[in-house]
Write a protein that binds this DNA or RNA. Structure first.
Length: 121
DNA sequence: GCAATGACGCTCT
DNA sequence: CAGAGCGCCATTG
């Protein structure tokens, strides 16, 4: 295919978004999450081939954009709750979108992972 | 190149 | 069950 340039443009800005392979890998896994299902950061990291790099998953998602078409809303922490983001308001948005997909939140505002956790198999 | 940060996870209290 | 602390490592400044 297209022979990428040197690794120099690895962390370029939005213009030439040369995302590292790990990021692309994470995006792929996130896209695999079916509607009405949720996955944890650690789970995504593990499936993406980055066991223990749950944080980088969150980082990758934060660096992602709407044009990436990533259902970041389906990614929650191990507690089954939406991670508190830097900007307020998104928590409610994420929850609203998940509820619109059929995901049920309990009184504590958490998801029953035993029920809605996505299983690749 | 070094230092601090971060959409997290796990264990212990 | 809830809260706090420590650890993991890539990305950013």
């Amino acid at each position: 295919m297209t022979p990428k340039n040197s690794a120099s443009e690895r962390s370029q800005s939005d213009s030439t978004r040369r995302l590292s392979e790990n990021y692309l890998r994470i995006y792929e896994v996130v896209r695999r999450v079916p509607e009405g299902r949720v996955a944890t950061y650690g789970q995504v990291a593990a499936i993406a081939g980055l066991p223990g790099h749950a944080r980088q998953v969150g980082y990758a998602l934060h660096a992602s954009r709407p044009e990436d078409d990533l259902p970041w809303q389906r990614i929650v922490n191990a507690k089954g709750e939406v991670s508190p983001r830097s900007e307020p308001g998104y928590e409610g948005l994420q929850r609203a979108m998940l509820e619109a997909e059929g995901v049920i939140f309990n009184t504590a505002g958490r998801i029953d992972l035993k029920r809605f956790r996505w299983q690749e198999a």
